[in-house]
Simulated scan of single mutants.
Amino acid sequence: MEPCITALELVKSNLGFYAPLSRDAKRASPESSLSLEITPLEYPGERACEKYALVSCTKALEFDPIADIYATTQMIVEHSIPSKYKASFGDARNGILRSIQRAIHKKSLDDLKVALAAWNENMVELKAKKVFAPCEFSGPAASYHMVSHVLEQAYSRSVAPESNLLNVYEGFSNNVYGEVKHNFVNTIIQEARIKPNHVFVDMGSGIGNVVLQVAAQCLCDTYGIEVSDNPAKLAAKQKKEFISRMSRYYAKPCGRITLKHSDFLEDAEMHEVIKTADVIFVNNYAFNAELNQNILAKFLDLKEGAVVISLRSFLPVDRPTARSSRRSNAIESIFTVKEHYFGRDCVSWMNEGGQYFIHTVDRKQLAKRYK
Rank of each mutant, 00 (worst) to 15 (best):
F17H: 13
F17R: 15
F17S: 10
P20I: 11
A25M: 04
A28K: 14
L34I: 12
E42G: 00
E42Q: 06
C49W: 02
A53G: 02
V55W: 08
V55I: 12
L61M: 15
S80E: 11
I81C: 03
K84S: 03
K84T: 08
S88W: 01
G95C: 06
I96Q: 08
A103T: 12
K113F: 00
N120Y: 03
L126G: 11
K129G: 02
V131Q: 03
P134F: 05
S138E: 14
G139N: 11
V147M: 06
S148P: 01
Y155D: 13
V159D: 07
A160L: 09
L166D: 02
L166K: 07
Y169A: 07
E170C: 00
F184L: 14
N186V: 09
H198F: 07
A216G: 08
A216N: 09
T222P: 00
I225V: 13
E226M: 03
N230T: 07
A232M: 09
A235V: 14
Q238M: 14
I243V: 14
I243G: 02
K252V: 03
K252L: 07
G255C: 12
G255V: 15
H261V: 08
D263A: 04
D263F: 01
D267I: 05
A277K: 03
I280G: 07
N283V: 03
N284W: 00
A286E: 12
E290W: 01
L291I: 07
A306D: 08
S310H: 09
D318K: 03
E332L: 10
K338R: 10
N351R: 14
G353M: 09
I358S: 12
D362E: 12
Q365Y: 00
K368E: 10
R369H: 06
Y370D: 08
